[in-house]
Amino acid sequence: MKENIEVDIRVPNQTRYLSLIGKIGEDMARTLRRFKGDREELAYHLNLVLTEAMANAILHANEDDPEREIHITISILDEQLSIKVFDQGQGFDICSLPSPDFKSLDEHGRGVYIIRSLMDRVTYRKMDGGHVLEMVKSLR
């Protein structure tokens, strides 16, 4: 039996929607009957990477402009999870950022590290009208 799910969501470019999208990710993880790992941990991690990626897109790529839009797709196909976050901005390439220096106690810079730690592959590329951040994780 296949367990393929795809959701496609568009919300205004505002941080008050972080919780909504994070919870959708959590609930998706909880439906995966065939996933053999810790479903509650996966749920938390999906909430987290969605929140981090969206916050970067809203505040940096889309420059906190409430008139813009964030487009997110979450798909689970053949035990591969893929999350895409589309922005409408000039770009904020998280892949080019260095790993944080844990000793410096900087206030910022942990979000990208968290995404990279929890996902298998992260790419950021230009497309028509903006950019897309793709985060992939194998659920096998």
Binding site: T51, E107, I114
Partner: peptide, 11 residues
């Protein structure tokens, strides 16, 4: 639930 911004505020 806490994200990197929450951690940043505490730092």
């Amino acid at each position: 639930f806490v994200d990197s911004s929450g951690l940043g505020a505490l730092v």
